Simulated assay, not measured.
Amino acid sequence: MSWAFFIDESGQDQRNSPYEVLAGVAVKDRELWRLIRQISDAQQHYFGMRLFEAYGHEAKATKLLNAKTFRLAAQMDPIASDERTRLAHEILLDGTAASRPRLTALAQAKIAYCQFVLQLAENHGAKVFGTMVPRAAPRPPRADALRKDYAFLFERFFYFLNGLPDTPMGYLVFDELDRSACHILLGQVASYFIRTKNGRTRSRLIIPEPFFVHSDMTTLVQLADIVAYVMSWGLRLPRMDEPAREELAPLVWRVERMKFSRTLDSGERQSGIMQIRDLRPAGAT
Rank of each mutant, 00 (worst) to 15 (best):
K197C: 06
L172K: 00
C182I: 01
Q222D: 15
R37G: 10
C182E: 06
D175S: 13
V221H: 00
Y171R: 04
T167S: 04
T263I: 11
I184N: 10
F174D: 08
C182T: 03
K259W: 02
Y55C: 04
I79M: 05
V227E: 05
E209I: 11
R50S: 09
V221S: 01
T285K: 11
I111W: 03
I91F: 05
G267H: 01
E83P: 02
P168N: 05
R245G: 00
P238R: 00
L51V: 09
A282W: 02
A67Y: 15
H214F: 14
Y55L: 14
T218D: 12
T219V: 15
E83T: 09
D241Y: 06
V189L: 15
L64R: 05
V128H: 05
R15N: 08
V230E: 09
D94A: 02
L161Q: 00
D13G: 10
K28L: 08
A26T: 08
A224Y: 06
I111L: 10
V117P: 06
L103I: 12
A4E: 12
S191Q: 08
V133T: 12
E9Y: 08
I39S: 07
E122C: 01
A143H: 10
L51A: 12
V230R: 02
R139W: 04
A137N: 14
V117A: 09
D41N: 09
R84G: 10
G95W: 10
Q188A: 02
V117G: 04
A42I: 14
F52R: 06
W233L: 11
E246L: 07
R102T: 01
L65V: 03
G199Y: 08
E209V: 12
Y113G: 03
A136W: 14
I194G: 02
V133I: 08
K63A: 06
F154P: 05
S40C: 07
R202D: 05
L205H: 04
E122Y: 04
R200D: 01
L161P: 05
P208R: 02
L264P: 09
A136Q: 15
A54W: 11
R71K: 15
G272E: 11
R156F: 07
V21I: 11
S81G: 01
I79F: 00
T85P: 07
F154M: 13
A88V: 13
E122H: 09
G24E: 02
Q108L: 02
D149Q: 09
G199Q: 07
V21W: 07
W33M: 13
Q44L: 13
V213F: 11
W33G: 03
Y171C: 09
A73V: 05
E31P: 01
P165G: 07
T219Y: 02
A143I: 12
L220W: 07
R30N: 15
Q270M: 12
S203M: 08
R239F: 15
G199M: 10
E242D: 10
S17A: 15
Q115V: 00
P238M: 03
C114Q: 03
Q222I: 14
I226N: 04
D144G: 00
E53S: 14
S17M: 10
S99N: 06
S99P: 14
L161R: 01
Q275G: 14
L248P: 12
H124R: 11
L251E: 05
I207E: 14
L92K: 05
S180C: 08
R84P: 12
G11T: 02
S215I: 04
R139Q: 13
T201S: 03
L146F: 10
